[in-house]
Simulated scan of single mutants.
Amino acid sequence: MHLDEIVARKRELWNHTTGVPEVGGERVRPAVAGTFAAALRGPHISVIAEVKPKSPSKGDLLPLDRAVSTARGYAAAGAAAVSVLADAPFFGGSPDLVAQIAADPEVTVPVLYKDFLVDVRQVHLAHRAGADAVLLIVRAVDDPLLVDLVQAAAALGLDALVETFTEDEIERALTAGARIVGVNNRDLQTFSVDLDNSARLRGLIPADVATVSESGIGGRTDLARVAGHGFDACLIGETLLTASRPGDALRDLLGVPVLRPEAAL
C-alpha cells in the first residue's frame, strides 16, 4: 500500500461524504494561528511525538486504549507537540482520537492532525476535533488545492505543516505560502527511509520558515545529526512506539537537550 493508493481511497471517501462530520464536543482551547509553529522553535531541537496505532509497513504499534495515556506521557516528557493519526483504514486512528487527545487536560502541548488531506472539509474537521495544526502532503494534491488547504487552515487559526520529499515539492510548498515545511525522509511510494534527505533539502528552506525533519530518527545520534542541519524540530513515531513506555523513551531521547547550530553562536 503506497501513497497513490491511499490518496485515491481518501478522495473516493470524501467524494461520497456530505458536509463535515461531527466529532468531539466543544473545543477546549481556541485555535490560535502560530501556536504550533512557536512550540517548535527554540534553542534546542524540538520533538513532535506521534500517536500512531498502526502503519502499513510495521503493522500494529499502539493499542487504542493506550493512545491518550501515551500522549500524556509525551507531554510530560518534554514533547513540543503531539501528532495524532486521524486516518482509520491504514493507520488505525480517527478524528475522534484526535479530539480525545486534544481535549485531555494533561496534554498541554499543541496537537497535529495527521491524515491525508485531499478536501478542504478535512481542515474544518481537524478544527472541530480540536487540533492546533494539520499535516498537508504536497505530493498528494495539486497546486490550487494545496493553496486552498493552506489558506483554509490559516482562516481557522490552524497552522499547516507542509510535508515535502523533493526539491520541487519544497518550491511548491513555499509558493503555496507554507510557514512550516517538513522534509520526509521516508519515500511514501516505497516506504524506504534515507535520513540524508533532510541534509540535501534543508538549505532550500528560508530561515524564517519553521522546519521539521520527519521519519528515520532512531536515537540521539540521529537527533543531533538533524539538529546539525539546522532543523527546528523532528517528528518521531515508531522509535518511541516500539518502546514499552513511549513517554520514558522520549524522556531518555531528549536527555541533555541538543542545541541547534545557530543557537550555539
Rank of each mutant, 00 (worst) to 15 (best):
H2K: 13
L3N: 09
A8N: 06
K10A: 08
K10Y: 12
R11S: 01
T17N: 15
T18Q: 15
G19V: 09
G25E: 13
R29V: 07
R29Y: 11
A31Q: 09
A31H: 11
V32Q: 12
T35F: 10
A37L: 01
A38H: 15
A38P: 06
R41V: 05
R41I: 02
G42T: 00
H44T: 02
H44A: 00
V51Y: 03
K54G: 02
S55W: 06
P56C: 12
S57M: 15
D60G: 10
P63K: 14
L64I: 08
R66H: 12
A67L: 08
G73Y: 09
Y74N: 00
G78H: 03
A80Q: 00
S83T: 01
S83E: 06
V84F: 03
V84A: 05
V84T: 11
L85D: 12
A86F: 07
F91Q: 13
F91S: 00
S94M: 02
L97E: 09
Q100R: 14
Q100E: 15
I101V: 12
A102H: 08
A103C: 07
E106Q: 03
V107R: 06
L112V: 10
D115C: 05
L117E: 06
V118L: 08
V120A: 15
Q122V: 06
A126Q: 06
R128L: 11
A129G: 13
A129H: 07
A131P: 02
D132H: 09
I137H: 05
I137F: 04
V138N: 10
R139P: 00
D142N: 11
V150R: 07
V150H: 12
A152M: 05
A152N: 03
A154F: 04
L156A: 14
L158V: 04
D159A: 05
D159K: 01
F165N: 10
T166K: 09
T166P: 02
E167Q: 14
E169A: 01
I170W: 13
R179N: 11
V181I: 05
G182W: 00
G182F: 04
N184M: 04
N185T: 06
R186H: 07
D187L: 12
D187A: 09
L188H: 09
Q189G: 14
T190W: 14
T190M: 15
S192R: 14
V193M: 03
S198T: 10
G203P: 11
V212P: 02
G216W: 13
G216D: 13
I217A: 05
A227D: 04
A233V: 07
T239K: 15
A243E: 14
A243H: 14
R245F: 14
R245E: 15
L250D: 06
V256I: 13
P257N: 04
L259N: 10
E262C: 03
A263P: 01
A264E: 04
A264M: 13
L265A: 11
